[in-house]
Design a protein around this nucleic acid. Structure first.
Lengths: 217, 217
DNA sequence: AAATAAAATTAGGTTTGCCTAATTTTATTT
DNA sequence: AAATAAAATTAGGCAAACCTAATTTTATTT
């Protein structure tokens, strides 16, 4: 259907479009993919010709319904494969992203739906991201971070924003996973570090950056 | 590790090397991949530089131990994914080849071994081809075809040589699968057509080509 | 052995998807 | 508003993997 590159651009644009109200510029896409802005301009032309995106200097890049549909399908496949790798093949959550990044491009009319069924129609992937359904609909992604919480409140880890191994391995070390209970004990006003209590164990201090990458409910 | 193209060339050369004693020429590789011989010459140079093959005008193309190892790994992945698609996702055997053709290129240090374990270490894929083990060893492929059989003898279908949907769908219609018993009733000497009895049902006549694509034991 | 046919190779070209460097456009400061 | 900085774009190039057409080498016939 589409080339690997085209699919990766669609996915990147889709991801950027999740931050509502933010204009998607060639530079932003270039950064997201680790490419040169000049290359992005090339691809914008190509995707525009194929009617997958629209580009307006004022509005930036937007997915057309066609482009949106394709991007969501790729995200669906990515997240389903992540569930498969973790639940069926026994990978840890810091190992699955890169493999799913390749699996997501395998295109077959019924593969995603069969995999979905085989996995029992999961609603969330191992990082807590909602999995788009066959009809394209999906649960609203979590948006409140640990850093947004009020001191003295308790929450449940719902998802992680950063899926890098570095971050996920750190979480593994702190024994934090999806579902873990965290109480926000104190915010250090000097640098916004967070003193937290993980699952009723002793207090731990983490950085603001850390807190901003944990989504809670 | 290697590009998609390089892997496909290795696989094609490996497949051709299964016919022992046959020289592997650029033309043969070109036919096998549906490419132009000129392109094959380009790639022979590239794979030779990478020490994956050796090319000698007299001997033709041969895989180096390195090349052999990689080719076998790709075949292993292909056949394991075929088992997965059939047994876990419920595909029919005429639908799995093309998808496995894509899945086989996904490269991860432990993926094939984990999949192997998840599937219960199968020895054969759904077409009856032996699956290379993690150490590279595998059962000897079946080699006797239905067309090789003596009139009046009975055999068990062990594998299919041709994995095209056209052939597999024909087999489905005839209700022939791996394990089906077939008796060779008569060989028509005019055109080598075969009169066979499938699983003790009424007699059927099939072509020589058909008989040569069914491996038996 | 010559003639012919087939296979292999070279030369030169195309497309995709990227790049750098230069230029133009747009946004931000002063 | 002018100056400066940043972003977008154009121009021109490169590597991979293919192609066609022409040429050379090898094999097969006569």
């Amino acid at each position: 259907m589409y080339t690997l590159s085209e699919e990766n651009y669609l996915k990147a644009i889709y991801r950027l479009s999740q931050d509502e109200g933010v204009k998607i510029t060639p530079t932003a896409i270039a950064e997201s993919l680790g490419n040169n802005p000049a290359s992005v301009v090339d691809m914008i032309r190509k995707l525009t010709d194929k009617q997958l995106i629209e580009y307006d200097k004022k509005k930036g890049v937007e997915l057309t319904p066609q482009g949106q549909k394709n991007a969501v399908l790729i995200v669906r496949r990515h997240r389903l494969w992540e569930v498969f790798l973790l639940e069926k093949l026994g990978y840890h959550w810091d190992e699955i992203h890169d493999i799913a990044e390749e699996l997501e491009h395998i295109n077959d009319a019924t593969l995603a739906d069969r995999l979905d069924k085989f996995l029992g129609f999961p609603d969330y992937d191992p990082h807590g991201d909602p999995i788009p359904k066959a009809n394209g609909k999906m649960a609203k992604p979590y948006s409140v971070t640990l850093a947004d919480m009020k001191t003295g409140t308790t929450c449940r880890v719902a998802a992680v924003k950063d899926t890098s191994s570095a971050f996920l391995q750190y979480l593994l070390k702190l024994e934090i996973g999806i579902g873990t209970t965290i109480a926000l004990v104190e915010k250090i006003s000097y640098d916004n570090s967070l003193v937290i209590r993980i699952a009723d164990r002793e207090n731990t201090t983490v950085s603001q950056k850390f807190g901003e990458n944990i989504l809670v409910e």
